[in-house]
Amino acid sequence: MHSTVKNLLDIKDTIKVKLNKINIKNYPKIIAVSKTFKIDQISPLIDYGHKDFGENKVQEAVEKWTEIKKINPELQLHMIGKLQTNKVKFAVKLFDYIHSVDSEKLAKKIADEQNKINKNIKIFLQVNIGDENQKSGINKNELKSLVNYCIEINLDLIGLMCIPPANIDPEVYFEEMKNLNKSLGLTELSMGMSSDFIIAAKYESTFIRVGSSIFGQRS
């Protein structure tokens, strides 16, 4: 068994054991964050049958995934990095999920581009849950207005996404995200990375984004 597949299965087992202890039966989907990794490192996971992969940069994803997705149409590709409006038309063609929508301008551009090719991408709104100046994401006080706008322009809005502040216990942020998501009537929640996915799963994250724990450290 390839090491990446073994790592993925270990993560799934860890989540199951920890969540069973606190009586949670819904396990999150794992997005294997494959940014910067070459396709020969990713192929064993595809061959094993893993479906969800995450990329941060549109250009890299287009070069890496365009042909592979033609051969494996069941693969689900997640855009998890900051998305510039000038890259939206390329992103819309390739990705199935966008996790980083944080403005009306970006939402409108996605809606326009997907209408042109008759595609319906699943959308997460990125919330700047720690109010950090250097981070992307919408301020939680402006969230309701953006949610309403996305509904108005017929985006398939499925949930919220966050990256909590580094080096602080993320628990309080994950709990707040869970409550925000519920209050808006959204069903999916994208939070948790290699360092904190167990805590995220405890707060009902439905998608966790794991890179280094599957693929090893990036060079």
Rank of each mutant, 00 (worst) to 15 (best):
I121Q: 06
K70P: 02
Y27E: 06
A32N: 03
K29W: 00
S219G: 12
S3H: 12
Q41N: 13
L8Q: 09
E176T: 13
V33G: 00
N72P: 05
F197T: 00
N23H: 06
F53V: 07
S145R: 13
K105N: 14
D96A: 08
E74V: 08
M79S: 10
L77W: 03
I168S: 09
Q126E: 15
V17Q: 00
R218V: 06
S136P: 02
L186E: 07
V172M: 14
I98N: 01
E171D: 05
M79I: 13
S213L: 14
E113G: 10
K69H: 03
Y97I: 15
S103L: 11
Y97N: 08
S34F: 06
A91G: 09
T4F: 14
I214G: 07
D196H: 08
V33C: 08
C162L: 13
C150P: 07
I138G: 01
M79N: 06
I198M: 11
K89W: 09
N133V: 10
L180G: 08
R218S: 04
K70G: 09
F37T: 00
E67F: 13
F124G: 07
M193Q: 11
G54Y: 05
F207S: 03
Q114G: 09
W65F: 10
K140P: 08
L160K: 05
K108D: 11
V92D: 02
K93Q: 14
P170T: 10
L83S: 05
F37S: 00
H50E: 15
G159S: 11
H50D: 02
K6I: 13
I199Y: 05
A91C: 15
V172D: 00
I80V: 15
K178G: 02
K140S: 14
P164I: 13
K182S: 06
S3V: 12
